[in-house]
Design a protein around this nucleic acid. Structure first.
Length: 435
RNA sequence: GCGCCCAUCGUCUAUCGGUUUAGGACACCAGGUUUUCAUCCUGGUAAGCGGGGUUCGACUCCCCGUGGGCGCGCCA
């Protein structure tokens, strides 16, 4: 029998990293096994399940490359099937009607737990058992006639022929109920695998209060899909050995459930950032450029940037970029009116007056055949002339021509900027900023 | 309260009873390279929650304790 797994989100808003991590593990597992990855939209909450929320889910899956193998199932369309199953259980005496008096709407349908002790094997947590006395009957159809999660979930998993259910471990206790339902319905019981939670520094479930928690936020913050995928895959799973930077293909080959941990793990944004830098640097230049543009499409100057120049800037800065959003700093390459980082100006230009040196440098630069090598010589010569130590004029030059204290190599940066801009900025800095 | 689950450096993890002075990565610290910036390189600090067993031998198995998480809805 071919392996079939599903990702079953409720489209009620943003997609949490814990949820998407569950999707990633399901996907990795099924791609490793050569089975089918399916999507079931649990949209029974008609109030909160909006088309926008559904689109958010789809976008998140697509962004991360979690491709599905069949059309999605919508739970809201399955109500009749759920109710029919409830009737079957009722007719077999496996469920009963009762007015628990909580809603004032009359009787609901309650599933009768067999009362036996139950055990099942969890693919990540091992053998789990629960005593019969702790397994209580539960409502499967509300008194208003709507099916409850447990029923809908199981019926749909049966319909979709799901062979392994991988989900968050907050569902561990539900599993006993679900298995009882499977048995009552005479369906083959799937395998189960429960994934530990992603927690914050306090050990509590990681939430938006702890930082970026939704997949859309990471995307907006300039992270790469491959890096987030890699990072999240490593949260609770390890291929063994010392491997961390992994391609999707490698992860597929290496992914097995017996290497999934059953202890919760803490989100570490710094490590994600590190991994992101690695993945970013590995990209082909064209791909990198494309992504930078996409991530910064709100920046007017970038949209209007000369393509040739933009390419050169990307080439120069790719290796030192951690997130796509950092490209917002590259503005000084493309506009005449640049922003100066106040702190850099104060520390590098004002603290010790470099106006004379910069003025002199500007006049030397103006005569130059403008190559990185010649620029370096010009800076060296200027330092000598004004009796500054070697290298002392590098930072002032950088701040003067870029407005920032960090960037690519200053000679290359100046060369790329072009003589006209460099000279103008040096003069401006010497006359206006050094005082 | 009851039930279930979990427990290795600050963090993510390796270790599937013995090749271990517990390895790697992030972070941090110190040097070096870069006559600048970012990288990069080298080194360092840093862990088996406590107590009992089992065993020739335990981080690894068992029990108790402690701590944390989850569950106990006509939510999903």
């Amino acid at each position: 029998m071919t392996v079939r797994v599903r990702f079953a989100p409720s489209p009620t808003g943003q997609v949490h990293i814990g949820n998407i991590r569950t999707a990633i593990f399901n996907w990795l597992y099924v791609r490793h096994e050569g089975g089918k990855f399916l999507l079931r939209v649990e949209d029974t909450d008609r109030e909160r399940s909006t088309p926008e929320a559904l689109k958010t889910v789809i976008d998140a899956l697509d962004w991360l490359g979690l491709d599905r193998d069949e059309e999605a199932m919508f739970q809201s369309a399955r109500c009749d099937a759920h109710l029919e199953a409830a009737e079957t259980l009722l007719s077999k005496g496996l469920a009963y009607k009762e007015d628990k008096g909580k809603t004032g709407k009359g009787e609901c349908i309650i599933f009768r737990m067999p009362g036996d002790d139950m055990t099942y094997h969890d693919e990540v947590k091992g053998d789990l058992k629960k005593e019969g006395k702790d397994l209580k009957d539960f409502v499967i159809v509300r008194s208003d006639g709507s099916p409850v999660f447990h029923l809908a979930n199981v019926i749909d998993d049966i319909e979709m022929n799901i062979t392994l259910i991988m989900r968050g471990d907050d569902h561990v206790e539900n599993t006993f109920r679900h298995i009882a339902l499977y048995r009552a319905l005479g369906a083959e019981i799937p395998q189960y695998a429960h994934l530990p939670m992603i927690v914050n520094a306090q050990g509590k479930p990681y939430s938006k209060r702890d930082g970026a928690a939704f997949i859309g936020e990471f995307r907006e913050n300039g992270y790469m899909a491959d890096a987030l995928f890699n990072y999240l895959a490593l949260l609770g799973w390890s291929p063994g050995g010392d491997r961390e930077l992994l391609s999707r293909q490698e992860m597929i080959e290496l992914f097995t459930l017996d290497r999934v941990r059953s202890a919760s793990s803490q989100m570490d944004v710094k490590k994600l950032g590190f991994l992101n830098g690695l993945h970013l640097a590995e990209q082909p230049l064209n791909k990198f450029m494309e992504q930078v543009c996409e991530a910064n499409d709100a920046l007017e100057w970038m949209n209007q940037a000369d393509p040739g120049m933009f390419r050169k800037v990307c080439e120069l800065l790719q290796s030192r970029t951690k997130t796509y959003n950092q490209a917002a700093e590259w503005k000084y390459f493309f506009v005449d009116d640049i922003d100066y980082a106040e702190k850099a100006v104060r520390k590098v230009l004002k603290k010790e007056d470099r106006s004379g040196a910069l003025e002199l440098l500007a006049s030397r630069m103006a005569q130059l055949d403008f190559s990185a090598e010649n620029i370096e010589h010009a800076i060296r010569a200027t330092e000598k002339e004004v009796e500054l130590g070697e290298g002392k004029l590098n930072q002032p030059t950088r701040v003067a021509i870029t407005g920032l204290a960090t960037g690519a190599g200053v000679y290359e940066t100046a060369a790329l900027l072009g003589k006209e801009r460099v000279v103008a900025r040096l003069l401006y800095a010497a006359r206006e900023l050094c005082v």
